[in-house]
């Protein structure tokens, strides 16, 4: 069940949803191409790991409960869309406020290191 605390999706739901490799893989797939069917997502997951259609559907339910995925119907098809608004909120709450200069510096350092490495 979705729980709310003062008008917000519980942050725990978002962090729990993100704390799983398959669910992050699904989010990445929806970032590349938003609006995908369960079948299409199942194929993407199957390329990386062994999982049943039921398993993928369960992961999608967790992402939906955390409001990271929104389902819209198109005729007979159910398509899954990435909702980046909660990620924005997490970013504002946990990165922007405390550590953005440091994170930015580290990101630049990482990019530089990786460019040199290539």
């Amino acid at each position: 069940m979705v729980t709310y605390c003062r008008g917000v999706i519980d942050e725990d739901l978002i962090f729990k949803a993100l704390a799983d490799g398959t669910r992050r893989l699904i989010l990445d797939a929806l970032h590349t191409q938003s609006g995908q069917s369960l079948g299409a997502l199942e194929e993407i997951v199957a390329d990386r790991t062994e999982m049943s259609r039921f398993g993928v559907a369960k992961h999608l339910k967790v992402l939906e409960a955390a409001d990271l995925v929104i389902v819209q119907r198109h005729g007979r098809q159910k398509l899954h869309y990435l909702n980046s608004v909660p990620i924005r909120a997490i970013y504002d709450r946990w990165i922007d406020k405390y550590t953005e200069p440091q994170v930015r510096a580290l990101t630049v350092l990482k990019q530089k290191a990786e460019t040199h490495h290539d």
Binding site: Y4, G7, V8, I9, T32, Q33, D67, I70, Y81, V85
Partner: peptide, 15 residues
Amino acid sequence: MTDLSKQVHGIYIDA
């Protein structure tokens, strides 16, 4: 290439 041709954004607002 990211496909952005249809974007869905949702938010709960206490109002």
